Simulated scan of single mutants.
Amino acid sequence: MPPARKRTRSYDPVKTRTAVLAQYGHVRAGVATLTPDQLALPTRLGDWTVRELVAHLGMTLGAVSALLGLPEPSEQDGTLLDWPFAIAADAPAIAAHARELAERHPDPDAHLAAAEERFTADLAARPGTRLLPTSAGALPLADYLVTRTVELVVHTDDLNAAVPGLDIPYDRQALAACTRLLADALAAKAPGGSTEVRVPPYAVVQCVEGPRHTRGTPPNVVETDPLTWLRLATGRLTWQQAVEDAHVSASGERADLSAYLPLMA
């Protein structure tokens, strides 16, 4: 069953563009320090190497440029909350493209720089209302840029996990947008008001069918930190492991979210 339609949260387009470029800048600075041996390291993304992951990170911006080069759809027929559930179908093509890009661009930093230069030029005269033909339907450019924060933040975490000591930082606004979009996606997938999910300091959502909480302390509460939430939402971490390791606190009979996770896989 597809997730229920919910009203999409609004995002400041200027802040989103700034956040995307800020996180991309953090990635570029980290990638510039990688040695050939580090680029050959495995990642937690199947058989992807760090080099292939870096090539894919260039496509977080390159995808925007590519979509802007296609004819504009006549009307919007998708929403931002459709995107997390649509992206999994693209996984095989995305992986193949990452490998092809890694082979075609032996200099990772040059690849990232070229993608950023084109992205900046393409966005200079494009309004946020410009529709893009994405896998989640026709979406406004401003909305699609929010999805770029998810790609950048989640894959920054993948890079940090793959390369010991790398420690690429997270732009606060990018992390906030990413956290909120995936929290809202959970609320769309598990509609209801019986459980409160808290990801401080960025998001609080109500979800899961059952008696709706109206005031006082909710009977079912889940709380975790932003990076743990992103790992749960994208399948990098299981619910059971997160609870066992005390990265998630869950209280109440409807506080087990394992049936709804991951959202993206």
Rank of each mutant, 00 (worst) to 15 (best):
P3Y: 00
A4C: 06
R9Q: 08
S10Q: 15
S10N: 13
V14A: 14
T16W: 01
T18M: 14
A22N: 08
Q23T: 09
H26A: 09
H26W: 05
V27Y: 07
A32Y: 10
T33H: 12
T35L: 03
P36D: 05
D37N: 05
L41M: 14
L41N: 14
L45N: 15
V54T: 10
L57G: 12
L57N: 12
S65K: 06
A66F: 12
G69Q: 02
G69C: 02
E75T: 03
Q76V: 06
G78R: 06
L80T: 01
L80N: 00
D82L: 08
A86Y: 10
P92Y: 00
A95C: 13
E100I: 09
E103T: 15
E103I: 13
R104A: 15
H105F: 15
P106V: 13
D107N: 07
P108N: 12
H111E: 12
H111Y: 11
A115P: 11
E117C: 07
F119L: 12
F119M: 11
A121L: 13
A121F: 07
A121K: 11
R126L: 04
G137W: 03
A138C: 02
L141K: 01
L141M: 07
L141S: 00
A142L: 01
D143P: 00
T147Y: 02
T149K: 08
E151W: 06
V153K: 12
T156F: 02
D157S: 14
L159M: 07
N160E: 04
A161D: 14
A162V: 04
V163W: 00
P169V: 11
R172C: 14
R172Q: 15
R172K: 15
R172G: 15
A174D: 01
A177D: 14
C178M: 08
T179V: 02
L186A: 09
A188G: 01
A190H: 01
P191W: 07
G192K: 09
G192I: 09
G192N: 09
S194E: 01
E196H: 13
V199K: 00
V199W: 01
P201Q: 03
P201Y: 04
A203D: 01
V204S: 08
V205G: 09
Q206W: 12
R212A: 15
R212M: 14
G216E: 05
T217L: 15
T217R: 15
E223I: 12
T224L: 08
T228L: 03
G235K: 10
R236A: 08
T238Y: 05
T238L: 08
W239T: 13
D245S: 14
D245W: 13
V248M: 08
S249A: 15
D256T: 07
A259K: 07
A259V: 04
A259Y: 04
Y260W: 13
L261I: 04
